[in-house]
Design a binder for these strands. Structure first.
Lengths: 219, 219
DNA sequence: TTCGCTACTCACCGCATAGTGACAGGCTGG
DNA sequence: CCAGCCTGTCACTATGCGGTGAGTAGCGAA
């Protein structure tokens, strides 16, 4: 008995979230959500499971079942936060530029999106998840993200209209696809299709090429 | 005892590869490799493991350790085949077209690559794997693929040169990224960034937009 | 036939996972 | 005070995984 308690006391805080949380359901729920996000950001969806989240949150997995109804509910909760992502991560102003044409706008948006994605590991993991699995979980996640993104695009567009004769929806989807894959690929292996993407200089090159592409279609 | 044998006989072939393989190491090796590829194509890398491959191949997992030195070796064997992928899946001729400019060429190559990727589930899974994990396994796989792809590009390029002042390497990397993500996204959820990618008509739209983008940069 | 090599199978280990049921401790209202 | 609810913990099952050591079955040569 003495041994047991001694061992327990000697153990380091079991998990980063542990702290001495008192009986506070709200706080615990938040801790779980934060742990889930952090875990997903850092480890990816491979090792994302009830046990891992519980460990990270420093609580029993039973609580995840109770409060979120299992992993699905937890993922859904993560998805709910996605709507605010764009608002939080992407500046709404024009950076002091005058965006006179649709081309101006899309160039700026493309670069903003690129930056935001590069800076947000959680978002990257979710995008990677989206193209790797096709479960209900992921589908819902993808939808949240897609909706938030398109709302942002719509909001920023204002009254600017794309050039006639260009299928802007399709072109923009391709641009977004390019950006997402570029960032994912860089994040995973430091390069994409032979193009190094590590240093700031590498990224400048990529950004320049991206601008050129946008200008090519939209003028 | 009687029960046992009866049950065994009543069971369907445990795995699709089973057949009545006689003691033939070469054949078994091939069966394992085929099983691995099929499994990866159909299930993705999530459930790709020693046990699953062995089940699918209808043999004991021990043989995978013996013949390939474990999963790593097996994946490497899959990677070795990747060099021939481009040769096998992408037509080398110009489809009766005259490719006079770099723009002509890249438009054609982009569409060829898009088609080839859409038609090859294994390749899609590997690309998805590449952006989702960063293990030695995947890195080697990615390198094989990248090398094969760049060799193909080089070979097809011939003497055509990109327009001055354009960083073709960067632009092409972005184009490839776009194509890959487009196909992956479609394969996973039937759409990409809000653009539906299910019917042939959907894909025509995407192809048209892609052509427009290529023409925009390369003329 | 018997020996020996090789292809192959089986049974097991340790360790993870998801999920569940029972229980303990604190707070609150009666 | 005590009863009951709520928060949190623990122990346990069932299942899967990767990995290994030992044993079996067929085939060819002496």
């Amino acid at each position: 008995m003495l041994n047991e308690s001694a061992v327990l006391e000697a153990l380091p805080q079991a998990a980063s979230e542990a702290e001495k949380r008192v009986r506070d359901r709200g706080a615990t729920e938040k801790a779980i959500l934060r742990a889930a996000k952090a875990l997903l950001s850092e480890e990816g969806f491979q090792n994302f499971g009830i046990n891992a989240v519980a460990r990270r949150a420093g609580c029993d997995k039973q609580l995840i079942y109770r409060y979120y109804g299992g992993l699905n509910g937890l993922v859904e909760a993560i998805g709910s936060d996605l709507g605010t992502w764009v608002r939080d991560r992407i500046p709404e102003d024009t950076g002091g530029m005058f965006l006179l044409t649709y081309g101006d706008l899309m160039e700026r948006l493309a670069l903003l999106f690129l930056e935001a994605l590069r800076d947000d590991p959680l978002m990257r993991r979710i995008v990677a998840w989206e193209v790797s699995e096709n479960t209900e979980q992921v589908r819902r996640l993808a939808e949240s993200r897609s909706k938030a993104l398109s709302q942002w695009l719509e909001r920023m567009k204002g009254s600017l209209a794309p050039p006639k004769g260009v299928d802007a929806a399709a072109v923009n989807a391709i641009l977004i696809a390019a950006i997402q894959h570029l960032v994912l690929s860089a994040s995973a292996g430091g390069q994409c299709a032979g193009l190094a993407l590590k240093t700031a200089k590498d990224w400048e090159k990529a950004a320049t090429a991206l601008k050129r592409i946008v200008r090519g279609v939209y003028g």
